[in-house]
């Protein structure tokens, strides 16, 4: 019993049926739909408590020990110490100030999982509480946009604070930004004029992707943010959750 009280509860992974996604970043101009294979996504983001257990087991991921290649100077800065959460980091808040490398290592080592891909994240984040795809619902859109208007220096809410969406997944919007496995695949041309010849010197293959559904600002903002990140970056509002493909072994 004592052991149970000190170790974190087993994280819940929610099954998501696959399907077709009309992404704001279509795979190609002539192909508007992305196939999303069935997968499972963590119901809530990884917390400070979860991440503390990870760094206790993995000294190479502690603040002060982690290699500079894998995390910048802000890594877990809000914790009181390398192995102490302290007053600024509630155990049930999502862990933030973590790099992509650290997030990946957590998912692999701690939960035998991986980060979700952008397509998987976008697919589940299209859902409201009642609809699989609420992206055309003006009220739902407005609610998300209202969150983006909240100043970024407010304390982060504890995980699980929001109603579950259609799939039973929580806090995809209105909580934190989240790393995805392929954050460095979101090649966004700043301007459609770049789609012509000059771009061919910047990008191999066809030109950079152009974003569709310009009215879907909330998701476009996520892409703009993710595509601006470097893998070692850490910020106050950037955390993660893990995913597993259906064919991938869990624990």
């Amino acid at each position: 019993m004592l052991l149970a009280a000190t170790s974190a509860a087993e994280p819940t992974y929610v099954p998501v049926e696959g399907g077709a996604l009309r992404s704001v970043l279509p795979p190609a101009p002539q192909q508007q739909e992305t196939r999303v294979a069935p997968f499972r996504l963590r119901r809530t983001a990884v917390t400070n408590r979860d991440f503390l257990a990870f760094v206790i087991r993995h000294p190479e991921w502690r603040r002060g020990t982690v290699a500079a290649l894998f995390a910048d100077g802000g890594y877990l800065r809000h914790w009181a110490g390398p192995l102490t959460l302290g007053a600024e980091a509630d155990a049930e808040q999502p862990v933030t100030q973590v790099s992509w490398f650290a997030a990946r290592a957590y998912c692999a080592e701690e939960e035998r999982a991986r980060l979700p891909t952008w397509s998987e994240w976008e697919y589940v984040a299209a859902a409201s509480e009642s609809a699989r795809d609420a992206r055309q619902d003006p009220a739902w859109r407005q609610r998300i946009l209202d969150w983006y208007a909240v100043p970024g220096d407010r304390p982060l809410a504890r995980v699980g604070g929001q109603p579950a969406n259609f799939y039973g997944i929580q806090d995809l919007h209105g909580a934190i930004w989240e790393w995805v496995e392929d954050f460095n695949s979101l090649l966004v041309s700043a301007d459609n004029r770049e789609q012509g010849d000059p771009d061919r010197t910047r990008f191999c293959g066809s030109g950079a992707l152009s974003m569709e559904q310009k009215e879907n600002y909330a998701v476009l903002m996520r892409i703009a943010l993710l595509s601006s990140l470097q893998a070692a970056y850490t910020t106050r509002n950037l955390g993660f959750r893990c995913a597993r493909g259906d064919a991938e072994p869990g624990r």
């Binding site: 190609a28 695949s185 090649l187 910047r202 293959g205 893998a231």
Partner: peptide
């Protein structure tokens, strides 16, 4: 490759036709 690209700050994406978009 994804990790190496991330460490180098290279963006890339596989396209449906088998080609790749990538920053140089």
């Amino acid at each position: 490759v994804r990790r190496l690209a991330a460490a180098l700050g290279v963006q890339y994406r596989k396209l449906p036709d088998g080609e790749f978009n990538h920053s140089t």
